[in-house]
Design a protein around this nucleic acid. Structure first.
Length: 573
DNA sequence: GCCGTTTTCGGCCCGACTGTTTTCAGTCG
């Protein structure tokens, strides 16, 4: 599957052409095609072989030839030529806030700046101010942008953004001048990492709201301040943008500021084709400029002949086309989850007793909780020997006799060894209510070996689900090289559920993998991988991730009742 | 570079804010 390789090259070409100063619409065409291919539900090699490339939205005559060349030769002459014209480091400058292609091109052509370190030196030396369009303030802003990038790498994990956003909202709700308020942006779409926080409010007195907003105690710096919008950075370097609109524009503004950008571009161009104009103030008649709707998002979508689209779906991955047909899935809701089947206790490397876990699970309204501790070879995590498994089974049996309203299942997160063998033999696995398996070492295998390893694990008759299938850790460990189609097909053949791990730095499977897997017929389980009861609420992020993958309630094992789950696991009733 | 029940050529989403400018280009979302 070369979809990602092709998309990456097209994205890089777009950046290079931007810096070269090519027309905006051309570079946008490259990006649109790249996005189509990135989210394509088919293997680009097959599409290319069957001469169907031009059926991909945004791919025309020129791009189809280039894509074919990449698929067949793993390289593209045109791209190689471009790379020779513009040094790699120049493109990296695009990551610095405040610098776009035009300015970077000036820096490159006039000051021969080809990387961030050169740029820093030039700013320190006051070299930029003589350049047209730059001044002393630009130098300071660029230096601040570079420092910020070095400190934060630009994005934070979903849980960090979620907590910061909710705290800010709590503060803002005390402001009497604010009528309506909502999180917007990528946090509302629950993307796995967040660049900055967007908050939308409605009010008749925007200036007073903005004054209140910038007085938030955690604000470190006010980055910009206008009549309707302002941006601040917090003490932890997270940037927060506020926008204030009138009540009658709140829905249109929320739709607009929730994004994604690609989703919005398509929405606006759809509106335009219908003789309408969509902006953050509402949906208008293009000719008369008459306001039509804008109070709620639903009004806006419906007026454009679409059913309402949930924020998590708004990535231009086919949701608009599906909404036109009225065929959007009824995606899983946060209240649909009946229990957590991936929790570690003090029996291995968790920090809480079974009682603590059960009490917290009850508080969350769960009907069941599965204690999946590490297996014997994971000594560092205090993995259980067979003898200790027997002791744990006994403790759980005794506990279940006392419990009302919630049941504890005894399980394991059994290690899959490098050769694909499981860390317990079948005699041990058989004793457990269900079996979860996962990889915890030797991450650097080649694609073929790693795929074989997981497939062999799933083929064991006692295995129920595969934990964190790709083993990625966001920002720290790349996903395993895997033949995902083979993994998905094996999951279906062996009736193995694939986990959507809710831990904020895992979120594994991710949204695009889940969507692809669902289309093939895979079933899922959402687990938290909790090692402390404070991790149990991470379920929220796993569900959000499943929603982003278009999953419905029926796709997910732990939405079923305790009774049905016991039947499924073949437990004594 | 793509695309077409307004068009095979001339469009391509739209607005706020900043910094450097004398009326606006660049960036951002």
């Amino acid at each position: 599957m070369k979809n990602k390789i092709v998309a990456d090259i097209l994205y890089q070409i777009a950046d290079l052409l931007d810096v070269k100063g090519d027309i905006f619409f051309k570079t946008r065409a490259y990006r649109m095609a790249a996005q189509s291919i990135e989210t394509l539900d088919e293997d680009i090699e097959i599409v290319s072989k069957e001469n169907r490339l031009r059926l991909i939205p945004g791919v025309g005559e020129a791009l189809s030839k280039k894509i074919k060349e990449i698929v067949e030769t793993d390289r593209l002459e045109y791209f190689e030529k471009l790379k020779k014209e513009i040094p790699r480091g120049v493109i990296d400058l695009l990551d610095i806030p405040g610098l776009g292609p035009k300015k970077i091109s000036l820096l490159y052509r006039h000051l021969s700046i080809t990387n961030i370190s050169d740029l820093k030196k030039a700013c320190d030396g006051g070299k930029l101010r003589d350049l047209e369009g730059f001044g002393e303030i630009s130098e300071k802003n660029i230096l601040r942008g570079i420092a910020l990038r070095e400190k934060t790498s630009g994005r934070v994990l979903l849980n960090v953004a979620y907590e910061n956003g909710n705290n800010y909202i709590k503060y803002l709700k005390q402001c009497k001048k604010i009528e309506k308020i909502s999180i917007a942006g990528s946090l509302r779409r629950m993307k796995e990492t967040i660049g900055d926080l967007d908050i939308l409010t409605s009010s008749d007195t925007p200036d007073e709201v903005i004054e209140y907003f910038v007085r938030y105690p955690n604000v470190n710096n006010v980055l910009l301040k206008g009549n309707t919008k302002t941006s601040v950075s917090l003490n932890n370097d997270i940037q927060v943008d506020l926008r204030v609109v009138e009540k009658k524009s709140f829905g249109a503004a929320l739709q607009y500021f929730t994004g994604s950008k690609e989703h919005n571009v398509k929405m606006r161009s759809m509106a335009s084709k219908k003789g309408l104009k969509l902006n953050e103030y509402g949906l208008f008649d293009k000719k008369t400029d008459k306001y039509l709707v804008g109070r709620t998002e639903k009004e806006v979508y419906n007026k454009l002949d679409l059913t309402y689209i949930e924020p998590e779906l708004r990535e231009n991955r086919g949701e608009i086309e599906t909404a036109i047909k009225g065929e959007l899935p009824n995606i899983v809701k946060h209240g649909d989850i009946k229990g957590d089947l991936h929790v570690h206790s003090r029996w291995s490397d968790g920090t809480d007793t079974l009682e603590n876990i059960v009490n917290y699970a009850k508080k969350l309204g769960y009907e069941y909780v599965g204690i999946a501790d590490h297996s014997q070879s994971l000594k560092i995590a205090h993995g259980l020997t067979e003898k200790r498994i027997d002791d744990k089974i006994k403790e759980i049996d005794d506990l279940n006799k006392k419990l009302e309203g919630v049941k504890v299942f005894c399980s394991t997160e059994c290690d899959i060894k490098p050769d694909g063998a499981l860390d317990y033999n079948n005699r041990v696995l058989k004793k457990l209510d269900f079996v979860c398996i996962g990889i915890h070492s030797s991450f650097k295998m080649n694609k073929n070996e790693a795929t074989k390893r997981i497939v062999k694990g799933m083929e064991n008759e006692h295995v129920d689900f595969l934990a964190h299938p790709t083993c990625r850790i966001i920002g720290r460990r790349e996903p395993l090289q895997l033949d995902m189609e083979k993994i998905f097909d094996t999951a279906i053949e062996t009736d193995t559920y694939l986990e959507i791990n809710s831990f904020p730095d895992r979120l594994d499977l991710n949204d695009t993998n889940s969507k692809f897997a669902k289309e093939r017929g895979v079933k899922f389980v959402i687990g938290t991988d909790s090692h402390n009861i404070s991790h149990l609420p991470y379920m929220h992020f796993g569900i959000a991730n499943a929603r982003r993958g278009w999953l419905e309630k029926d796709d997910i094992l732990n939405t079923i009742s305790l009774k049905n789950l016991e039947k499924k696991f073949g437990c004594d009733l």
